[in-house]
Amino acid sequence: MDRRASWLKGVLDLLVLASLTEGESYGYAIAKRLDDAGLGRIRGGTLYPVLNRMEEAGLVAAEYRAVEKGPGRRYYVLTDEGRTVLAEQGRAWTEFDASVRSVLAEGGIR
């Protein structure tokens, strides 16, 4: 089983929210940014349902912009609610990460 995929599943929404803190972005650019950060390639089949869910939940807002050449894009921007959720859940993840590190360290993994 690909462990990285299951780890990512639990934290992808937070990573997407975090990648929008510096400003609006669109699907492919978000995926590329996370890939560049070392998280591996996130396929559209995984990313867009997450974006959709977060939009429904009001954590991000999307705006469609047509372009002169080729298909238009949907740009996502973080909402106030999204910022709040990112702060709360991000803190929870960091605490979880610290606990995992602590237990692994006891097992000699540093």
Binding site: Y28, G44, G45, G72, R74
Partner: peptide, 23 residues
């Protein structure tokens, strides 16, 4: 329509076949 346009743009940029990219 907006979503499908977005996905079409994504496929064009990634260079991957839609089936491979989205399942």
């Amino acid at each position: 329509r907006a979503l499908l346009d977005d996905l079409a743009a994504h496929t064009a940029e990634s260079g991957a076949a839609p089936e491979e990219e989205f399942g």
